Simulated assay, not measured.
Amino acid sequence: MNSLANIIHVSLLSIMKNKRRNIFTMIGIIIGIAAVITIMSLGNGFKKTANEEFSNAGASKGAALINYFAKDPNAPNRDPFTESDMELARQVKGVKDARVKEDDTFGLSSKASTEKKETDIAVVKKTSVTSPEEGEGFTEDDNLMENRVATISSNVADELFKGNAVGKTIYIDGMGFEVVGIQNNGQIQNAVSIPTRTVKHYLPNLKPDAPQLEILFDEKQNKKKIANQVAKKLNQSGSAAGLGEYQYTDLEEMMKSIGKIFDSITYFVAAVAGISLFIAGIGVMNVMYISVAERTEEIAIRRAFGAKSRHIEFQFLIESVILCLIGGIIGLLLGILLASLVDALTPEYIKSAVSLGSILLAVGVSTLIGVVFGWIPARSASKKELIDIIK
């Protein structure tokens, strides 16, 4: 252990002795590792976000979602998941419970009207809207007090009031709401934002366009088999069986496929970025050859005191590994910083996730570069015999 500690100490002294040269040598490793870590962190972030979205959509192991697709999209909306439908689903062996899942990500379907006009809208539940493009919006106090206020998108404002909407009243499901602002929602063109508690109190009957039946069961059960049995039973006896079709989509399989695609793209791009590591390795080899040439006298002295070839080889090999490890650690920290910076600049679009695998990859690749590209110069140093040096 003392011998290894001494070798590491001598290696660090040698690296510090030629700081400028070694820093320039490490730059290639730093850039390469930083690029790989940044790409992998962003790739892992995309994958994690996608998995969360799929889990929210029913791709978790203990639940499955049954969708209903009407034959005639223009037919009057009919609730395809009544209490009797849920009872049918519960009768299927393995189903613990069944309930309607109302995904209101894209709002609750309704119509807004004035005395003269009417338009389709999507009611979005929010606790507050404090910075609308026009008007004052509503606050958390409005939500707590269940005030009948709303902000509407510019599309709805143009349709109902030709743009001049603030202060006017719109009617939703027979209930009047004061327009307190115009606020566009990027995902929903015809959005009408209303305090969450107000919606629950005054508009309890609103439903999303596409309700889903969520069935729950033990994780050990065959999810696909049970879900297909539920869909089959509903297609035979469901309340809306003749007007459309009940279907189960295996989101978990879709999630796995998309995860594999993300992994493939991430590793491919990381491999392309890793080409710079090969170039950096050539630089390390060149520096180690220079170091061997400059330290011929040191090799001769160690030979004179009985050092064997393997001792000389190990000394220079350890020095190469330490040089690459320092560059790899700096590159790792820089990569995490860059990924976090991208995450901070685009919080709504990109999420980074640094995994233990990425960290081990950075350390492992750095060590491998040190071993592979340091071995040849180290081998060259070990073959120098004392008599040849004296000559």
Results as ranks from 00 to 15, higher is better:
Ala57Gln: 09
Gly58His: 03
Gly58Pro: 04
Ser60Glu: 13
Ser60Asn: 15
Ser60His: 02
Lys61Asp: 05
Lys61Tyr: 05
Lys61Cys: 07
Lys61Pro: 06
Gly62Met: 09
Ala63Trp: 04
Ala63Cys: 04
Ala64Cys: 10
Ile66His: 01
Asn67His: 12
Asn67Ser: 15
Phe69Asp: 08
Phe69Glu: 15
Ala70Thr: 13
Ala70Pro: 09
Ala70Tyr: 06
Lys71Tyr: 09
Asp72Met: 07
Asn74Cys: 07
Ala75Ile: 09
Ala75Gln: 12
Ala75Trp: 03
Pro76Gly: 06
Asn77His: 14
Asn77Trp: 15
Asn77Ala: 14
Asn77Tyr: 11
Arg78Tyr: 07
Arg78Phe: 11
Arg78Pro: 10
Asp79Asn: 15
Asp79Val: 12
Pro80Ala: 05
Thr82Asn: 11
Glu83Ala: 11
Asp85Ile: 03
Asp85Arg: 05
Asp85Cys: 05
Asp85Tyr: 01
Met86His: 03
Met86Ala: 07
Met86Gly: 12
Leu88Cys: 12
Leu88Lys: 12
Ala89Leu: 05
Arg90Ile: 13
Arg90Tyr: 09
Gln91Trp: 06
Gln91Val: 11
Gln91Gly: 12
Val92Ile: 15
Val92Cys: 04
Lys93Cys: 08
Lys93Asp: 14
Gly94Val: 01
Gly94Lys: 08
Gly94Glu: 11
Lys96Phe: 02
Lys96Asn: 14
Asp97Lys: 13
Asp97Met: 06
Asp97Tyr: 10
Ala98Cys: 06
Ala98Gly: 13
Arg99Lys: 14
Val100Lys: 07
Val100Glu: 08
Val100Ala: 12
Lys101Gly: 02
Glu102Phe: 13
Glu102Asp: 09
Asp103Leu: 06
Asp103Ile: 01
Asp103Gly: 03
Asp104Cys: 04
Thr105Trp: 07
Thr105Glu: 07
Phe106Pro: 00
Gly107Pro: 04
Ser109Val: 08
Lys111Val: 14
Lys111His: 11
Ala112Arg: 00
Ala112Met: 00
Ser113Tyr: 02
Ser113Gly: 02
Ser113Ala: 14
Lys116Trp: 04
Lys116Glu: 15
Thr119Val: 14
Thr119Glu: 05
Asp120Tyr: 11
Asp120Gly: 08
Asp120Ala: 09
Asp120Trp: 01
Ile121Tyr: 08
Ile121His: 03
Ile121Ser: 04
Ala122Leu: 15
Ala122Pro: 00
Ala122Gly: 02
Val123Gly: 00
Lys125Phe: 07
Lys126Ala: 15
Thr127Ala: 08
Ser128Arg: 09
Val129Gly: 00
Val129Pro: 01
Thr130Arg: 09
Ser131Leu: 07
Glu133Ile: 10
Glu133Thr: 15
Glu133Trp: 02
Glu133His: 08
Glu134Ser: 14
Gly135Asn: 02
Gly135Pro: 06
Glu136Cys: 00
Glu136Gly: 00
Gly137Phe: 13
Gly137Thr: 01
Gly137Asp: 04
Phe138Lys: 04
Phe138Tyr: 12
Thr139Lys: 02
Asp141Tyr: 01
Asp141Met: 13
Asp142Gly: 01
Asn143Phe: 05
Leu144Phe: 03
Met145Lys: 14
Met145Gly: 05
Glu146Gly: 06
Asn147Cys: 02
Asn147Leu: 03
Arg148Thr: 15
Val149Asn: 02
Val149Thr: 06
Ala150Gly: 03
Ala150Asn: 03
Thr151Gln: 12
Thr151Leu: 11
Ser153Ile: 10
Ser153Pro: 07
Ser154Phe: 05
Ser154Ile: 07
Ser154Pro: 05
Asn155Asp: 15
Asn155Thr: 12
